[in-house]
Each structure stands twice: as structure tokens, then as C-alpha cells.
Design a protein around this nucleic acid. Structure first.
Lengths: 214, 214
DNA sequence: TGACAATATGACTACCCAGTCATATAATAT
DNA sequence: ATATTATATGACTGGGTAGTCATATTGTCA
């Protein structure tokens, strides 16, 4: 958590620091991101950064917290839709909204994607583990429910299914990030939405319960 | 390419350097791996490292080359088996042999997995791109063939299918690497082979052509 | 033995970093 | 106007890095 001093700052100054820090962490791994550079680029003395934040980890975790909150807010109407929309459509919606989020907040998406790839074990363990477990158990619950519904075959290993759903999302994000490196995306959403459908076609059949076996 | 001087070295010295360098690149990203440390730990003067290699990139690429060669050698009897074994069984064999390779050569596997996650764009682009394209077009060819065979549905997007096959392998590797961090694996292969089967169950159904549609 | 080439060496340059701290400045309260 | 507190600052510490280079050592051939 940032120190009180940071929250006492005028909003515009706070926002600048946040913005610059997001850029830095989007372009570099945690280990290689530089507080010195963030301070310089924000027009703030390096010492001040340490009046605002405990240390680099504190700053990084705060960024992740902001990202997490924003993403949860963004995805809030995707949850608890399984009963209404069915399993696959729920996932489709999650993927699509996730892509939209990444297109609208590329820095945040890039930071999140960097975290997944983070090699600095300490920090990854600390943060990712609970989240991945959360998302895994979330998807596991969805699959269990879908099994009861007959939407997913009993023979499917739930944990593996959850893992795949999780990774399919990463595939989509990677595709997005990669093409963002080369060109502005703006409203090329449609192209990526098509990708979602292609992926889901495979996922749906892959998990589906047999319909007309004798 | 290492300089001639490196190849003039007595084999044991060369092997030491290679071994230590593999360890360093297995534990650190390209950016954070340290030639200084490799030199120290190999009992070689830092300056000597630069008699052997052009620079850090040269050393890194050489490691990747060794890994690539060894892996190709390891997988050599997995190729061109599609006609004999069928599509899914070919993939199963590739996955399983890939896991075996990683269990037997954990350092190499870890370096390869780090490369995929590499953030330092320049190096990743340079090396990964052609390889990923190679593997993608390899898998694409397999899928095309399997479509003609009726093993894979025509409606599947080939490129997306290839991507999934590629990523499923990454999922397996990640699972393996993660559990290797905590415990020795040795002959717990069986557990991971089961995972392969679970994954393939989903992949097979996901890609399969409809069998008894009217 | 001497001469020449190949190799080994580590101090050195020029850079980067996180985090600290004494001091200066600004804001607030009395 | 003074005293007290909150904030801003950048030089500094101690650490790390890649890559260079003049010099020393070793090996080889005559």
C-alpha cells in the first residue's frame, strides 16, 4: 500500500505517476522496471517516490491492485450468467469482454500479461498464485455445474478443463498484444471476436457431452 | 557462433562452461543472466569469456542452438508418423516425448520455456519468430492432412488449431516446470502422461469431424 | 634456445540500479 | 510571527552489469 503522503497528493500528480509507472511496468518485467526512470519521467525527485511508496514492490503491487479493480468492474456483468446464458456463452462473453478491456487498457493488459510470464519467482508466487487458483476454481465450478447440466461430458477432467479455459484466454491476449506491437488496433475488435468464436468452437466440442450415443 | 578459440578448448572446460551457462540461463531471463557470474562460477576469467564468445547474445544463441539440436535428435522418430499412427496419436507421441525430454534435460527445458516468456523483445523476435512459425506451419500441415483424412472437421480454423496444439504443449511444460520447482520428478512421468491423455481427450473431440450426423 | 602466435587475465570504463538520509522548503497551527 | 509538522530533494552508498584492453602466460614450431 502506498503511504498516506501519496494519497495527499493533488490528483493530477498522482495520476501522472500512476500513468508513467503503468508504462514502465508494461514495457519491462518487474525486475527490470526502474523506479529511477519513473521518477525522472514523472518529474518527481527519486526520494519522493520513497515518500509515496515503501519500495518498488509496493508500487508494483499497487498497480496490480488498480488493474484488478478496474478489470473486475469491467467484467462485473459477466458473472453469475451461467444459469441464464449457458456454459459456453458465459465463457464467450468473458473472453470477449476481456479482449475489450485489453483493447481499451493496453498498458494494464500488458502488465497483467507480463506478470503471468514473470520469471522473478518471489513476486509471481506471491501475487499470481492466489489469483490463478481463484480463476481456476472459478472455472472449475463452472465446469462442474455444466457437467450436471449435460453441457460438459462427465469424462472430462475438471481441473484440466479449467486450465484450458484459463490458457485459451492467454492465447487470445497474446495474439492481441502481438498485433498491438505492430499496429494500432482501435476497432479491429471484430477480427479478434472471430478468433474467440473459432476457439470456442473447438472448446465446446472438446468438452461437450455425447449427444446421441446409443 | 562461438569463436574458434572456444572450440580449441579441452572438452572438459568447454563442457563446464556450457553447463554453467545453461544453469544461468535456466534461472534468469536473457536480460538478467550474467556473463560475469558464468565466468566466475566456471573458474574462468571474464575476459576469457569474450575470447570464446562475441558477446552475451552469441553465448545465448549458442545455448539455444545446442538445445534445438538435442531436441530435434530426441524427437526424430516422432516425425512423419501421421500416416502410420494417425493425427491424434502423432500429437500424443510428440507431447509425451517432449515431456520426457524436459524431464531428462530440465535446464534445457527451462531455458526454452524462458525464451517463450522473454520480454526482451529484440531477442525474442529474432529467435522465436521463425521457430514458432515453423512449428505453426508444421502443425497446420498436420491439421490439413487430418482434415482430408476425416480426422479433423473442415469447419475448424487450421491456424487456430495449430496454435492450440502449440499452446497445449506449453501448458504441459508449465505444469512440469512448476512441479519441478518443488520436488524432484524422476520417474513421475506417468502422472504427466495422464495429463497428456486428458488434454488430448479434449483436443480430439474438439477438432473431430462429426461422425454420425444425418 | 629463440621467436611468434594463441590464449588467459583482471583491472578498468561507463553505465545501470534500489534504497537512504540529511537538508531544504512548504504548509499548517498556535 | 513562531513553532511544528509534512513534504520535496538529490547527492550518496553499495551494489550490480557488459564489454574492453594492455599485459602476462602458455604453446608451438624451427
Amino acid at each position: 500500500m502506498p503511504k498516506q503522503t501519496f494519497f495527499n497528493l493533488p490528483e493530477s500528480k498522482r495520476d501522472t505517476i500512476i500513468q508513467i509507472a503503468m508504462e514502465e511496468f508494461a514495457q519491462n518485467s518487474y525486475l527490470n522496471a526502474s523506479i529511477t526512470k519513473i521518477a525522472e519521467r514523472s518529474g518527481v525527485a527519486k526520494g519522493s517516490m520513497y515518500q509515496y511508496f515503501q519500495d518498488k514492490k509496493d508500487l508494483y503491487k499497487y498497480m496490480l491492485e488498480l488493474i484488478g479493480k478496474k478489470k473486475i468492474e469491467y467484467l462485473k456483468d459477466c458473472w453469475g450468467q451461467q444459469d441464464k446464458m449457458g456454459f459456453i456463452e458465459s465463457i464467450r462473453m468473458l473472453y470477449k469482454r476481456g479482449l475489450e478491456f485489453a483493447i481499451e487498457n493496453p498498458l494494464m493488459a500488458s502488465i497483467a500479461s507480463n506478470l503471468i510470464k514473470e520469471q522473478h519467482t518471489e513476486i509471481r508466487e506471491e501475487i499470481l498464485k492466489e489469483n490463478q487458483n481463484k480463476s481456476n476454481s472459478f472455472f472449475s465450478d463452472m465446469i462442474e455445474k455444466a457437467k450436471k447440466n449435460g453441457e460438459v461430458a462427465e469424462e472430462i477432467n475438471t481441473e484440466m478443463g479449467a486450465r484450458i479455459i484459463y490458457h485459451f484466454n492467454n492465447i487470445l491476449m497474446d495474439m492481441l498484444m502481438t498485433s498491438m506491437e505492430y499496429e494500432q488496433i482501435f476497432s479491429r475488435q471484430e477480427e479478434f471476436f472471430k478468433r474467440v468464436d473459432e476457439l470456442l468452437l473447438i472448446l465446446e466440442k472438446g468438452l461437450a457431452a455425447p449427444k446421441d450415443r446409443k
